[in-house]
Write a protein that binds this DNA or RNA. Structure first.
Lengths: 135, 135
DNA sequence: ATTGACTCTCTAGCGACTATAGGGTTTATG
DNA sequence: CATAAACCCTATAGTCGCTAGAGAGTCAAT
């Protein structure tokens, strides 16, 4: 059942350095060591790190994930903090989505300003970029 | 017509440090200096920096902006590199948009798993986060 | 003469890692 | 049993696009 960091890395899809970084940032407990000072992990570590990875895929920061993990160790507290973290993150994602959609539109408009191989001095994109003054 | 860095900053909406950073990264030419070693700018500098700011608002990296500025100084070359930069950036934005939309959906689904003030041990969000194994 | 506002350079810090250097350990093969 | 390959260790520097701060100099007004 025991494994070293390389095996854990391939089981979780994380890099070895990322795992050590999470340990340093106290997102995972300091693991035991072998006689040769190698980190030793087990199935619990895999689950723990997969949880972290999944949260990272959702765009949560390490601090937010840390908060989620803290709540998990106090199972009798209410989970309003969890809801709060997720709600906050949803708001961040929604804001970012709106920004990116506006951006996409501007880029699309910009792209139509220039054909394939004009001389740069006639390039509509450059002209446009120099003329637009308001963001 | 001449101005110091603070005036340039308020004319462009950039921070003083950002302007100095752009100079260091060679996005703007090294400006002249006053007798007291103050950077001296003019209207051209304003245009130059507004161009950069506009590109940053579009999400272009400083390296990409540098490439655009390089093409601008060679007005007889074709602007295919410009098109290439913009096309590449559109692709990046589109990919990011798709990712964020998926993310948003997953977060929305997750949020329905838990009401307001359950005990953490019964929180559907935590359970969900621990069970989902594929990203 | 002094205050206050402005500017200078240099350095450190953010977040979430990645990459490297320079070593030690374990495992497989000859 | 010797050695080479594969793995692991710590510590440090780098990424990007800035921001914030220290400690010093410059300039305008009172």
């Amino acid at each position: 059942m025991n494994m070293k960091i390389g095996t854990l890395a391939s089981h979780t899809g994380l890099s070895i350095q990322a795992i050590r970084y999470y340990e340093q940032q106290e997102l995972v407990p300091t693991p035991g060591r072998s006689s040769g000072n190698y980190r030793i992990y087990d199935e619990t570590s895999v689950k723990h790190l997969v949880f972290i990875k999944h949260c990272r895929n959702l765009g949560l920061s390490l601090e937010e994930i840390k908060a989620l993990l803290r709540v998990r160790t106090k199972p009798d507290e209410t989970c309003s903090e969890i809801n709060h973290i997720i709600d906050h993150h949803v708001a961040v994602v929604d804001r970012r989505l709106t920004e990116l959609q506006e951006l996409r539109q501007q880029l699309g408009a910009l792209r139509t300003k220039c054909g394939e191989n004009q001389a740069a001095k006639d390039c509509g994109i450059l002209r446009e970029l120099f003329e637009i003054t308001s963001p």
